[in-house]
């Protein structure tokens, strides 16, 4: 059966700032299984990006335990155990699209035939064939973000970490990329951890929705979606979809009201 990819146990992270300690994450418990599509949703400042960065070993937790692929996040990072897609495409302007996708492969020391094959395959996966020789600044924002997804996929990780990858794109492009991402997930059985602040996006994509609330960043609710794995955009009109979206919204509200009482 399925096995745990990410196990988080009583995790906390406190930043020391000049204005005193900031509790970015507090008492996080989470278990993500192989093949899950997990969305982290919450208002800004709830620590959803921070949690993703802890998983990726871009931040160090100050308390609790976390394992990624059964090992520490640092060991997982050293083993190139995940692909990370950032909010911005972050492509290197001096490299062509193909060269950008091939960047992690060069760093991993793969030979040029393998690199070429993987670049071609992953660019095809995000529908960017024919743009290999273009430079990033010659493409639209949506195409750039697709190239950055291809770059993350080229590493061929079983785990994909995505930090609001479609946040800066317009609604139509976003819908399209969501569809493509879902198809990719259904096809490859990868584990995806996806940060967003859009309820429809989270419900449409996810098998599990982790609702977070701020100050201190913690988990408010974990909603398990019973929607089928194969979904089309039409599913957003169905009662099941709206029921899940409502539960997520309630979770977000609960987190907020708690915040109001506190302050």
């Amino acid at each position: 059966m399925s096995e745990s990819v990410i196990q988080v146990d009583k995790l906390s992270l406190t930043f020391q700032t000049n204005d005193g300690p900031v509790h970015a994450l507090s008492d996080i418990d989470l278990d993500i299984q192989q093949g899950d599509f997990v969305s982290l949703i919450g208002p800004s400042g709830c620590g959803k990006t921070t949690l993703l960065r802890v998983i990726a070993d871009l931040e160090k937790a100050t308390g609790g335990n976390i394992t990624v692929n059964g090992v520490s996040p640092e060991a997982a990072r050293q083993a190139r155990g995940y692909g990370y897609v950032f909010q911005a495409a972050g492509l290197y302007p001096w490299r062509t699209i193909a060269k950008n996708v091939s960047l992690p492969l060069e760093i991993m020391g793969l030979d040029s035939a393998t690199r070429k094959e993987r670049v071609a395959r992953n660019l095809a996966l995000v529908n960017l064939e024919g743009f290999e020789k273009k430079y990033p600044w010659q493409l639209s924002g949506g195409m750039q973000q697709r190239a950055s997804i291809a770059r993350a996929l080229a590493v061929e990780p079983d785990l994909l970490l995505m930090d609001e990858p479609f946040g800066a794109l317009d609604e139509i492009v976003r819908d399209h990329l969501n569809e493509q991402l879902l198809a990719l997930w259904a096809k490859t059985n990868k584990t995806v951890v996806f940060v967003t602040h859009s309820i429809p996006e989270a419900v449409y994509l996810s098998s599990h929705i982790v609702v977070m609330s701020p100050r201190p960043g913690r988990i408010q609710d974990i909603v398990v979606s019973d929607l089928p794995r194969e979904r089309t955009l039409d599913i957003r009109e169905t009662p099941e979809f709206l029921r899940i979206a409502n539960r997520v919204r309630e979770g977000l509200r609960a987190g907020h009201s708690y915040d109001d009482v506190e302050s």
Partner: peptide
């Protein structure tokens, strides 16, 4: 080099020289 680009190299577990030659010097 921007934060994102440096983080990116980090996620690839790139060493100092790789980051220097592939990102920071360009």
């Amino acid at each position: 080099a921007s934060r994102i680009q440096l983080d990116l190299m980090n996620t690839y577990a790139a060493n100092y020289w790789q980051t220097l030659f592939k990102l920071r010097l360009p």
